[in-house]
Design a protein around this nucleic acid. Structure first.
Lengths: 340, 340
DNA sequence: ACAATTAACTAAACCGATTTAGTTTTATAA
DNA sequence: TTATAAAACTAAATCGGTTTAGTTAATTGT
């Protein structure tokens, strides 16, 4: 079964390529192609399983019906869920999505952006490394449609959909405070991401509201690429803090995982000796010993909103659409903080 | 900053498009373009940040330097990890990857295959729904390069990379048997996937080796789309089995998750009353209460091998390459089966 | 001193669609 | 009975590259 092209159909049916193209793009009526000819073309196409070459179509239209999604890492559950929902929503709206992982490398992020533009994507959804303002601003300047998700550049006026990191972490910290914990460690990433900054501010704000002094020794900032090795000393030092911390807030699900693993290795009782809360979660966090109280992100909502905003902008329908969204997270209380 | 095209470069430098194209594709020397002209072209291109339109290039070359990856669901950790490794490996070999999820729908899988062919992917890696033999055979017949992963069609002679499901599950079951468990339930999916079939055979084979009678009541086959609702009765019935089962083997990580959740809800003590083993795992399975003994799949190896085979075939280097691989899994013993 | 090479390029076809600007034929209006 | 409009098409340009088949001018061989 050979591939069949527009030209083949045209020749076999003795009509022009134009006619075939118009009919197969549902523009037969408005271009007054007779019903009979339309029927012949459609039937022949269906029968021979014709499908247009997207490269050719994209080239000639200058469109590709494709959007790009650039994320730090497709293997991370958070982003893979985002990817899943983005794909679903985009498909429903008639778009294909091109994924790629930047691996937190700003240079690679730039390359991916360019590579996707080459491929004529019509818009981008980017969870940026946030060290790539240059490329983001250049997109902005070219009026290329894009939406930042999860991470945005506060200094740049762009579309974005993020979670309320400040209040998410504040609520988590307050939860510990309400349960009487006072020496609260915070294990997070080295600053760089706005989201991470906001989470620290949320932590601090909660302390302030409870009139508790903020102490730098309680903050452990690990390197994104090396946290697995750094967790041991971070935990060790927190446990050395005058009589040890009584609780720890982790600012990402993977820090929680390695952190809890380390606490177990050190035979620290959770939550009796040290309570823990996690920002973001993993599928099995409710099964963990103890089930981990976590700040849950509205993953599906982030994805859907981003796609909506993007495609609205691509199709230029509703330019007045509010395009900066801060979504709420939700504290799922389980057992890792104990009770009163 | 306007986009710059081949034509622009040619005009500005007073050379032909041909020259520019040849030079930028590293074919300058073999086509005797003078060193000086080459330098001018390369510099101009770099300076103006020229990047070729992949659609045009793909169209004219009939190549796209792209491979497709079709998986059931990008949100599933197993497949998202596969995706991550495939992306990495492919990029290293100069290929971009196009992902898409079939959601276990054979019809959609077919559409995705066709859609990817339209986009001129040069090869496909497919974790098939396994109800789509038609499309797979049609690829085979067209001599289109592809590799099946995770799931394959035993009745069709294709490239594949799968894990040894039979021995993986046999080892898991044997582990329970060696620890003295005798009434072993098996919670799995409705048959359809070869992998699932193999896992059942592995379970049976272990029983046979230990001279234990196989009992159908101990096998619970849930629907892939509805297992969350079906798990309750499955577990309930296993617990009703003459004096209850003393252990359960779960054939996927998500069945393990919902199963353990249900066991906890029913206050069944794991592993004292019921031991459990999981085929495949989730990131936090070592933190779960109890840490779950799991059959670990060589995810990275699956991905790398598949990409290697595929690209070898695309580039037609080493056609004698062994292209059917069954990789070994590994039983990671944790605490969910207790000890002697 | 003249044919044969070689170096250094280029014109134009092509990939497979889409789309603009017509053309031809038939029907309708004045 | 024309001019006009509508119906039913189509030729050819275009998208932005790649590639084949030359061309021209300088160099070499004999």
């Amino acid at each position: 079964m050979k591939k069949v092209f527009l030209k083949d159909i045209a020749e076999k049916l003795n009509v022009s390529k134009t006619a075939v193209s118009l009919v197969l793009n549902n523009k037969g009526d408005e271009n007054k192609i007779s019903q009979e000819t339309q029927k012949r073309i459609i039937e022949f196409a269906k029968e021979h399983n014709y499908v247009p070459n997207q490269l050719a179509r994209g080239l000639s239209r200058g469109k590709s019906e494709t959007i790009g999604l650039i994320i730090p890492n497709i293997s991370d559950t958070f982003y893979s869920k985002i990817a899943g929902y983005v794909e679903l929503k985009a498909k429903n709206l008639g778009y294909t999505v091109l994924f790629s992982s930047s691996n937190e490398d700003p240079k690679k992020e730039g390359e991916l952006i360019r590579s996707m533009l080459n491929r004529q994507v019509e818009g981008l959804i980017i969870a940026s490394t946030q060290q790539n303002l240059k490329d983001i601003q250049s997109l902005k300047q070219d009026k290329f449609p894009f939406v930042l998700i999860d991470r945005h550049y506060p200094e740049s006026d762009t579309n974005y959909v993020v979670v309320d990191n400040f209040n998410g972490l504040k609520t988590a910290t307050e939860h510990l405070l309400q349960l009487g914990r006072r020496k609260i460690g915070f294990i997070t990433l080295k600053p760089g991401l706005e989201a991470i900054k906001q989470r620290l501010l949320g932590y601090q704000s909660a302390l302030t509201d409870f009139d508790i002094e903020y102490k730098e020794e309680l903050i452990k900032e690990l390197s994104p690429g090396n946290y697995e090795n750094e967790i041991e000393s971070a935990i060790r030092e927190l446990l050395k803090f005058p009589n040890s911390v009584d609780s720890i807030v982790f600012s990402t699900h993977y820090l929680t995982s390695v952190g809890l693993r380390e606490l177990k290795r050190k035979n620290v009782k959770v939550p009796q000796e040290v309570a823990i809360v996690s920002f973001d979660e993993l599928t099995a966090f409710d099964l963990v010993d103890p089930p981990i109280t976590s700040v849950i992100q509205p993953v599906k909502d982030i994805a859907n909103t981003a796609v909506d905003i993007l495609i609205n902008e691509i199709e230029g329908k509703d330019s007045a659409m509010d395009n900066k969204r801060i979504l709420n997270s939700k504290l799922e209380i389980r057992k890792s903080c104990g009770t009163f």
